[in-house]
Computed example of a mutant assay.
Amino acid sequence: AHANENIVEEQLRGSGEETDMRSTAVVLAIDRECRTAAWAHCGDTRLYCFRQGQIHAQTRDHSMVQEMVDARLLLAEEIRHHPRRNVLYAALGTEDQLDIAGSDGTFALLEGDAFLICTDGLWEYNEEAFVGDALASAGTPAAWLDALAARVRATARANHDNYTAVAVWVRGDDLETTVLKPTPRSALV
């Protein structure tokens, strides 16, 4: 809510592109002592939790195409290339009621759990099966993100959306975290 207020404030202060500024977001909170996690999201930035190589949890996009999938008007695999895939029903930067979805309570963490938080610029070019295969062959969170970024660079059309990602692996009492920094569109041309 605070991030939304800040974006709205900047919109009101801005004079150009800032007046239409919006953002999608995912927040992942991990309690190391209790070995639990919880998350919340807004828009089509996604959180995936992989357990034993399979998707165990995934956020649900706040988008027109997700509603079409839910209504059985569109197949889930068609989301990535649908011409209306960027029509969102929720995003930070709105003065209307903000739709933030959260996990139901806390999520018990197990050894080997892997989280991927990523913008649509990454998941659009990485089908879930490929993400799981890349995870299985990666030795580190950085290697996992490198494989996903390489696929985007190899398959994305020129001037496609930028992408950002964070990988978090649960290993023993430690969490390994790697951030794939925002990639500007100019780097993808």
Rank of each mutant, 00 (worst) to 15 (best):
T24M: 00
E67Y: 10
L74D: 03
I55S: 07
I55Y: 05
A136M: 11
A167M: 07
T164K: 06
A76Y: 02
C42N: 03
R153P: 02
T45P: 09
H160D: 15
T19E: 08
L145K: 01
C34K: 15
E33D: 15
V166D: 06
P83A: 05
K181L: 12
P141F: 05
L145V: 01
Y125R: 00
E9M: 06
P141N: 06
H62K: 04
D104V: 14
A114M: 00
R60T: 15
I30Q: 03
T178E: 13
Q11C: 04
T24P: 00
N162C: 02
L110N: 15
R80V: 04
A138Y: 09
L75S: 10
L148C: 15
Q66P: 04
L188C: 11
S63R: 08
A57W: 08
V87M: 12
A136G: 10
E5M: 07
Y89N: 15
G93T: 09
A149V: 13
A57R: 12
V8I: 10
T119P: 03
R85L: 05
A108R: 14
L122V: 10
A143L: 13
C42V: 15
A187Y: 13
L122F: 11
P184C: 01
A156F: 04
N159Q: 13
N4V: 01
A91L: 02
T119W: 02
A57V: 10
E128H: 06
A1P: 10
D61T: 01
I79W: 05
H41C: 05
F130T: 01
L47C: 06
A147L: 12
I79A: 04
D173Y: 03
A150F: 06
F130M: 02
R51I: 00
L74M: 06
D70P: 10
A187F: 12
P83K: 04
T178Q: 11
T178P: 00
A187L: 14
Q58K: 08
K181M: 11
D161T: 01
A136H: 13
